[in-house]
Amino acid sequence: MVLHIMADALFISVAILTIGSAIVALETRELVYGAIGLAISMMGIAGFFLLLDSPFVAMFQITVYVGAVAVLVIFTVMLVRTQALFSIKEDPRRKTAGIVLLLVFIGGIGAVVLASGLGNPAFTKFNKPAIDVATIGKQMVTYYAPVLVLLGLTLAASVIGALALARREDIEQKNERVD
């Protein structure tokens, strides 16, 4: 019972942290604070994974999103002039429309979840042990091997594409001329 209450309290606080920092990330005028809010929100999602007994996914969430994506975002934001970004005046009608859209979206998702039978108590009562990392590894190279190969090819293709796009021929030509 105490454990349940603890888990609920943790869930609520992580949820408040995640949503609050997501709102900060969207609303703040300081872009760096927005990027920090994004990083904290991603850490909150890692907290959800920890609460769901999947530490492996949680650690990768932190490694990839906080360690790499947030660093990239902050790095880019620091090099950008922020004054020019906020010259457009806000339209109150757009704000209202956004809130209405949000409510419709949340209502739709909620209806789908309620209709899906997740409220059935048989769904929420399961006592399976957490999946250990070795099982994930075995599944990755057996059942999910085609997906893994496909993902690897996609990543390789995108890295090669990025290299090709970032290649600057003018600099190479200049170097040749100097030589």
Binding site: P55, F60, T63, G67
Partner: peptide, 22 residues
């Protein structure tokens, strides 16, 4: 004593460049 201790170490070490940059 977690089962993903080594990954956790690298995940936490990933914070340092962020803090230094900020």
């Amino acid at each position: 004593n977690t089962d993903v201790g080594l990954i956790a170490v690298f995940a936490i070490l990933g914070f340092f460049p962020l803090i230094a940059l900020l």
